[in-house]
Design a protein around this nucleic acid. Structure first.
Lengths: 352, 352
DNA sequence: TTGTATGCGTTATCAG
DNA sequence: CTGATAACGCATACAA
């Protein structure tokens, strides 16, 4: 009553052939006579033969599976990326093994070890905001493991990377707030250990300067855990509202920071944009159902997954060591909402 | 420069032992001398040995991976379930292969075939709303593949199942609308091919009857694609608002139906609850940020994944064919929101 | 054109 | 206590 798969042996025995003949017939090898081929193929079809991928993996020394590490699957941005990854992977006969770091460097390392022990062929990762030590990535990379970083990339490691145009996204967002007439624009941002954090902060600062506003350190709040901890978010908001001059607008530079901020504002009884201006990165499909006046920056997500996977497969299937690594920059989209109106602005693509 | 893993052979050669001795030492077999064990274990640790899971799979005829099929990963409910599945799976040394049906019976079948070809050890699935033909599941099940259905289960197949208490959830939701004073309560529901649809519809109808209201066929709108198609949703809403007596409240009996309905209402310029009452199933984390007066029913999600996985692992690791299949019913939660207040009601657990 | 033998990494069985 | 060998399912170099 157990689930017994049919093997090449079964076919060989049934047809009075050798396993190698069957194997070759199935692979449509030129050295097999048409009649034998037809015989084998028809029989294989009939008894519903499928090659055992595990045996193949063992032989070919590749598992045809790629590892993914993100902080949260339930995060709408990442689930969209995973969608993109899956679509490309499936089309190329790869399957994906997904694991979550929950923004913990420790769990990230555990996942990494788990994935390598599952002998994945390559890795697509957006590192956790908590990660400081990249030596394990470096070691893996040096040992020849194909790696593609996306979203939150690691500058120190030379491999393919895919990112959104974070600087421009942040720049545009901040500029929009300025154009709306806000003067004291605060920002919530992740730690700047990762380039993504740096770039968004830089975009914010550049936009202020370009509009004749001097950036104010006290208006910049860092959230180490990316807004996952409500306590941390409250802390940040408290700091802002404890200032002598409270901000009149906020730029939330990440998904969780945007929703976290919105939540915190609501709990304070403040509404957008009557009491305070707000714009933020957010990829949730529900964003349009939120405050009708909440403008958001969307990162490319599905496309990000697709691009990252294509690059990874290139690395995996490369016959020779790759050296010309590239960093793809995908455009962000800004959705400006004023009451019922929604204007969609697509920042122009930049590929480097 | 390729990624070369260290094997038992490497250890054996380096230590001048045979592979079998090394293998036994690593498995802490009683027949190996303590010194040899220590020698082997220390060396293995030193050169960072990890057993090759693929070789193990081939030998043990099990892949230690379980297949998951859901309609959408990006659906917040399913991503929460997957979270639960993952946590249990990882703890037991299994990995998960996720695939999406996108509510298409055809893609579901393709995924099913893909997963079986990847020789998964078991399957956890919430079938697509479109699926009518369950013969492939039956065949798989009859051939001994462990299967656990969750959420959208298939009545005809005898195996473990995990569901939410859909009847009670729908009953409570509808009752709540009645208690709020609404008289003409419509419902948006998925097709009743799946028991989940049947139960929710039954809960809605029972609640109406128990409150002295006669159910009205014209107030029941079926959405075949579960609200994924905006067009379909519009169609349904149009039908409702074309009635001589338009409904004064709506019960949306599924995640996508709730957000879809909300979207449709907004696009009509109707707001909740001033113009129309609304309650619906929804598992999005952002639901609290939506209409402050939008009450929702949450399905158990993470827990659902955990329970389903535990049951599946039981099946996979059972030494003898299992016959006492069970259907676990997990309680739903209702969040009643009136302006700023939120009342949380947990329906009591029912296990059968 | 087809068959035989070998190896991928591991463990179980048997022999020493 | 340890070692040699076969087997898991497949592909392929080598033989015929």
């Amino acid at each position: 009553m157990k689930f017994e798969a049919v093997t090449i042996k079964d076919i060989a025995k049934a047809l009075g052939l050798s396993t190698s003949t069957v194997s070759r017939a199935l692979r449509d090898s030129y050295e097999i006579s048409p009649e034998t081929k037809k015989l084998v193929l028809e029989y294989a079809e009939k008894i519903n033969y499928h090659p055992n991928p595990i045996a193949l993996s063992l032989k070919e020394r590749r598992s045809r599976s790629i590892g993914i590490i993100v902080c949260e699957i339930a995060n709408s941005y990442f689930s969209q990326v995973i969608n993109g990854i899956e679509s490309i992977a499936q089309n190329n006969g790869y399957n994906v093994i997904i694991s979550q770091s929950h923004e913990s460097a420790e769990r990230e390392l555990l996942n990494l070890q788990y994935l390598t022990s599952r002998s994945m062929d390559g890795l697509i990762i957006s590192v956790s905001t908590e990660t400081r030590d990249f030596s394990y990535f470096r070691e893996l990379h040096d040992r020849g493991m194909p790696i593609v970083f996306f979203d939150r990339i690691v500058d120190e490691i030379e491999t393919h990377k895919v990112i959104a145009d974070n600087f421009k996204g942040a720049y545009d967002a901040t500029t929009h707030l300025v154009k709306c007439g806000y003067k004291r624009i605060a920002t919530l941002c992740n730690t700047t250990t990762l380039s993504i954090g740096k770039e968004r902060l830089a975009g914010y600062i550049a936009a202020l300067k370009d509009n004749g506003i001097t950036p104010d350190e006290s208006l910049i709040q860092y959230c180490q855990h990316g807004g996952l901890l409500a306590a941390e978010m409250d802390e940040a908001m408290n700091s802002l509202f404890r200032l002598r001059k409270v901000p009149d607008a906020i730029f939330a530079s990440a998904d969780k920071l945007t929703t976290g901020c919105l939540r915190a504002l609501k709990s304070r009884g403040l509404s957008v944009p009557d009491d305070i201006g707000l714009i933020g990165f957010s990829n949730s499909e529900l964003t349009e159902l939120l405050e009708p006046s909440l403008s958001v920056i969307k990162q490319p997500a599905f496309e990000m997954g697709e691009v990252a996977t294509s690059l990874l497969l290139e690395l995996i299937e490369a016959r020779h060591p790759v050296t010309n690594f590239q960093t793809k920059v995908l455009p962000t989209e800004m959705f400006i909402r004023q009451s019922t109106q929604t204007k969609k602005i697509r920042t122009k693509p930049v590929i480097s």
